[in-house]
Design a binder for these strands. Structure first.
Lengths: 254, 254
DNA sequence: TTTTTTAGTTTGTCAGGACAAAGTATTGAC
DNA sequence: GTCAATACTTTGTCCTGACAAACTAAAAAA
């Protein structure tokens, strides 16, 4: 019997599972729940049905139900408390699902990007680069210098080093596609990266290239990216015009 | 019988579980595995024993073993492939465990922090702040201006707004503790935040306060933080001396 | 009235078993 | 020798069942 508690317990009506589908049951359940939550049918703060009842009503086992709920907990849509129940979390809090993608593509989003390849050659890795990529000093790498425009204006000056043998790069490809896209296409999926974001003033050459005044503030970002097996894919050292660019990130704790 | 495959299959020797301990079995198993991996006893790239055998040898059920392994997979130490096995991932790739904490405390880590409270008062929220905290324009908030030193030198000028009623702040407390520590102590745990990181040049007042030259590059960071229930906890607008500070982050892609 | 005890609810942990799906290695046919 | 079929290994999904731990709320005792 439903008790009368202040956060109403929504009944989660028409959820059914399709056992002939190749989609795992737990995922079907999670998806249905997610739909109901996003459609607002299970209002924020409301407690969902308890595991045991939900499982019984859907005709699946409790572990399957648990796994579905766990899945949504992990992406921040639900919170569980032992002895209490499972609540829907405020939507604003549900963002950080994809905090984690690595994109040059902040640009690609809405502004018209254009890339000019200033340099493309093979050089012995400078000490800093070799260390970042975990190569012996002097190992050769592909070295790229690109100037990226957005909306017709220069936005960033980007230097990258890529270990030889990973991928063969043509200036043409680089002009038309992002580096990460090219890497992915060659079968290398960046999974982990460490970034350092800082700022400094533009020197004369940078100011000229980026059409800024000398001494203008620049955002700097250096990054090393690895694939899932720990192979270093890329080292990058970029400077952005602070007047036109900023980093936006979503963090989640615990 | 162990086959002879190029990545050697480590035997994961002396792992035992303590059933009288209050620590969950799956967590004991995960911890032991993690130790072995971090001590290098299961070398990078090596496959660990398969679930079934491991479970049997430890005297726990397969679901428990699975859960332990899953736990390490989620924090990026292991990779599993159906039909193949479970491999240890390169250590460099294991970082992003705690990308997710919100800290002022980058500073507190090793450098001696000191905080000077320049302002502490209640004011109607400016438009930008009100929007960030999802308050009606003009709602009163606690407004703080702090100057943070590290190693005897000024490092950052920080402005924060906190909704009234959350917490009563004293200049004394703020001088001795981080804002997040005070919030946590009052029972408010920041869970989600959105940050924007940019750069600009210091104006005269900022330069004076931070002991920089006028026009020096500053790193800027504005942030809004929410707790798990979606309540807005804090809005912050900080500027850092770019010559002394940078943001370091670890990203991981889904 | 206030505090303590008790009972009830709900999630957390764990076992053991069964079959499916995805790879890998071996075998057999051509 | 090359290619396809087969067997094997390993993780993925799912079930039933049981008890423990945390929390809430009601009942009992002070």
């Amino acid at each position: 019997m439903a008790s009368d508690l202040s956060p109403p317990r929504s009944p989660v009506r028409p959820v059914e599972v399709d056992r002939s589908s190749p989609v795992p049951l737990y995922f079907q359940v999670a998806s249905r729940l997610q739909e109901l939550i996003e459609a607002g049918e299970i209002g924020v703060g409301a407690r969902i049905e308890n595991e045991v009842d939900l499982a019984e009503r859907l005709g699946v086992s409790r572990p399957t139900t648990r796994r579905a709920i766990q899945y949504l907990v992990e992406r921040g849509m639900l919170v569980r408390k032992r002895g209490v129940g499972t609540q829907v979390v405020h939507p604003k809090v549900r963002r950080p699902v994809e905090l984690s993608s690595l994109y040059d593509d902040l640009v690609t989003a809405d502004r018209k990007p254009r890339t000019e390849v200033l340099q493309l050659k093979v050089i012995p890795a400078p000490a800093e680069v070799a260390e970042a990529l975990e190569l012996s000093p002097g190992t050769e790498v592909t070295w790229i210098e690109r100037l990226r425009y957005a909306g017709g204006e220069p936005l960033a000056l980007m230097h990258n080093a890529i270990p030889l043998g990973l991928i063969h790069l043509e200036a043409d490809d680089l002009a038309r596609h992002g580096l990460y896209e090219l890497l992915r296409r060659a079968g290398y999926q960046p999974r982990i990266a460490t970034q350092v974001i800082g700022a400094r003033s533009a020197n004369a050459a940078e100011a000229r290239t980026l059409q800024e005044k000398r001494g203008a503030s620049l955002l700097t970002m250096t990054r090393t990216a690895w694939d899932v097996s720990g192979r270093a894919l890329e080292y990058g050292s970029h400077v952005y015009r602070a007047s036109r660019y900023s980093f936006e990130l979503n963090l989640s704790a615990g």
